[in-house]
């Protein structure tokens, strides 16, 4: 029924479970995330949305004593498989965090960080990469005259777009966004949303959001999580207007008010 069904999923989980210590936080999640599209993940606080996202790029490795079961595959590679090159994996799977977290370096150095670190392009090509990514993140016009200024001097919304530019410069194919707009005002939010919409032609984007309208605006498909389980997944339109599961319906109607 969907146009994505034909292409192999960019991210696929099969009965994937995750434990923080003794606590099982994700329960047998099976999900398929289409390539080059925006997929939203919604659900009540604490249901495991961030945990899922942080499994995809193995950010959860930072937490001691965690365990997984089942399969999680990104572009054909098993994320928790023994042969995974973690550095290369994280370069392919970019992440934008809830709080903008630019480095206390210059705007330029922030964007150049990934490509320089991973030696993606020759050093002399960096300025061009920086410009392209800042343009892509709709930030170029605001910062082109002060590339050497500290990134921490930018507004919150600009910082978040800088973080997106920084992620893009790393040439990822997947972009994970964990509530990227929750620290931003409505105008900045709108800019980031436009940007996400723009980026979906080239990137597989997974966005966690508490904002139903935002999910409706940017995502073609939406998954609803509750208590560590994927309750329902479908076309965004369908999830919001005709949810099949009563839990989804209760959440959606509660949130839309």
């Amino acid at each position: 029924m969907t146009d994505h069904a034909s292409a192999p999923p960019a991210i696929e989980a099969r009965d994937f479970s995750f434990w923080y210590g003794e606590r099982k936080t994700l329960h047998e999640v099976s999900i398929q995330i289409a390539p080059k599209a925006v997929t939203a993940i919604i659900g009540p606080s604490g249901c495991g949305k961030s945990t899922f996202l942080r499994c995809v790029n193995r950010m959860n490795d930072l937490v001691v004593d965690t365990r997984t079961e089942g399969e999680l595959v990104v572009e054909g590679r098993a994320v928790y498989g023994s042969g995974l090159d973690l550095v290369a994996h994280r370069q392919r799977v970019g992440m934008v965090f809830q709080r903008p977290n630019p480095f206390p370096k210059s705007i330029y150095d922030n964007v150049a960080y990934g490509p320089a670190l991973n030696a993606l392009v020759p050093r002399r090509a960096l300025p061009e990469v920086v410009e392209r990514c800042l343009r892509r993140a709709a930030l170029w016009d605001e910062v082109k005259d002060r590339l050497q200024a500290p990134a921490t001097g930018l507004s919150g919304g600009q910082q978040q777009r800088l973080c997106i530019a920084r992620a893009l410069a790393n040439e990822p194919s997947v972009l994970l966004m964990d509530e990227p707009c929750s620290a931003l005002d409505p105008i900045a939010t709108l800019k980031v949303e436009e940007l996400i919409f723009e980026l979906k032609q080239d990137y597989t984007i997974v966005i966690v959001t508490h904002n139903m309208q935002q999910a409706a605006r940017v995502a073609s498909r939406t998954g609803f999580f509750e208590a560590g389980r994927l309750v329902e997944m479908g076309e965004t339109q369908q999830i919001f207007t005709a949810p099949r599961n009563e839990r989804t319906e209760a959440y959606i109607t509660g949130r839309f008010g």
């Binding site: 550095v87 994280r90 630019p102 920084r166």
Partner: peptide, 25 residues
């Protein structure tokens, strides 16, 4: 922790995260 996560998420190794993000911060 966002500084470390930012570096790691960009493909830094643990040592690179320390030397290029945490110590400079």
């Amino acid at each position: 922790s966002g500084q470390r996560e930012a570096a790691l998420a960009l493909g830094a190794t643990r040592w690179e995260a320390v030397s290029t993000a945490i110590v400079p911060y």
